[in-house]
Amino acid sequence: MYKQLFVCFFLFVFTNVKAQELNCNVTVNADQIQVSNNQIFKTLENSLTEFMNQTQWTSVAFKDHEKIKCAVTILLTEQKSTNTFTGTLQVQASRPVFNSAYYSPLLNYKDNSFSFQYTEFQPINYNPNGFESNLVSVMSYYAYLILGMYVDTFSLEGGSPYLNNALTIANQSQQSGYLGWENSKGNITRFTLIDQMLATVNEPYRKLVYQYHFDIMDVFERNQKSAASRMIQLLLPLEKMYDENPNSFMIRIFMDAKSDEIVNIFKNNSAVDTSELISVLKRVSSTNSKKWRQIDSL
């Protein structure tokens, strides 16, 4: 009952009041670049932190302790010209678990196609009506991706409006000439990621993500063994999703965020029979085989 009241309150607040939504820690690492003025990178870091945390992305209101915890780590690897930089972007986000101090990871994604132009002290502002700069578009895209994924864990496909905003940004940016926005078969780009997330064929995945958090993680502290058993039944259909759509990036995105959490859950509930689950996990996420062996050895 308390959980339902909490979610109803969450959804009411999320749709009726205007305020900033993110608690985003932005880090700019430029150790690989030799420049005469390193202060430009600290200025950029401060500007992006302000941009992510003070932009009003939606009609949402959280108190400071309720804002969505996320982090963006920019690793600059090359300076192409005076104001043109390339590097990578690591984006992480988490979601509070009901009635606990634990935060469950939602996203842990590395974007390897990040380049932008920046002049110190230039204004960084989001324009929903068109492409302004790649720096603004990339950061805005990830703000909406985080928001959409977050709301999806409280309401089945409730994050669609924010995911659609990310898709709009991707579409607007495709003509910019910057890498990372292209529709590339077989590769994860910002466009293919959001396009697949919203695709009808991946609706079972979004339902699984919702049930994982709302039906299992949010009640985990009440009865861990029962919750762990139900998690097995929830995750087994990943094999069918994989068989029906082996080119989907969604399982990879899910496992990049959740693999450590899944391991820890079953290591702490070793009495639960995980043999069938391990077989599925090894098949659908073979890159995490070493992690799955930690469960298999219990």
Rank of each mutant, 00 (worst) to 15 (best):
Y2C: 11
K3R: 14
F6I: 13
V7D: 12
L11P: 05
L11M: 15
E21G: 03
V26P: 06
T27Y: 14
T27L: 15
V28R: 10
N29E: 08
A30V: 02
A30D: 13
S36Q: 13
I40Y: 10
K42T: 12
L48E: 04
F51Q: 04
N53D: 12
E66W: 03
E66A: 01
K67F: 03
C70V: 06
L75Y: 08
S81Q: 07
T86M: 11
T88M: 12
L89R: 10
L89S: 11
V97G: 08
F98P: 00
N99Q: 13
P105F: 05
Y109P: 11
K110T: 15
D111N: 13
S115G: 05
E120H: 12
Q122P: 00
P123Q: 00
N125F: 01
Y126C: 00
N127K: 09
G130A: 02
S133C: 04
S140C: 03
Y142N: 05
L145S: 04
M149N: 12
Y150A: 01
T153C: 13
F154I: 15
G159T: 08
S160Q: 15
S160A: 10
Y162K: 02
Y162C: 03
N164S: 11
T168V: 13
I169A: 09
Q174Y: 04
Q175F: 05
G177L: 00
Y178F: 03
Y178E: 00
Y178P: 00
S184N: 06
S184I: 11
K185W: 02
K185Q: 12
G186H: 01
L193P: 02
I194T: 05
T200G: 09
Y205N: 09
Y210N: 13
Y212D: 14
F214M: 14
I216D: 01
M217N: 13
V219K: 14
F220D: 06
S226M: 14
A227I: 11
R230I: 02
L236S: 06
P237I: 15
K240T: 15
N247F: 07
N247D: 15
I253H: 06
D260R: 10
E261M: 15
I265T: 09
N269P: 07
A271N: 12
E276Q: 14
V280M: 01
K291A: 09
Q294E: 10
D296F: 08
L298H: 10
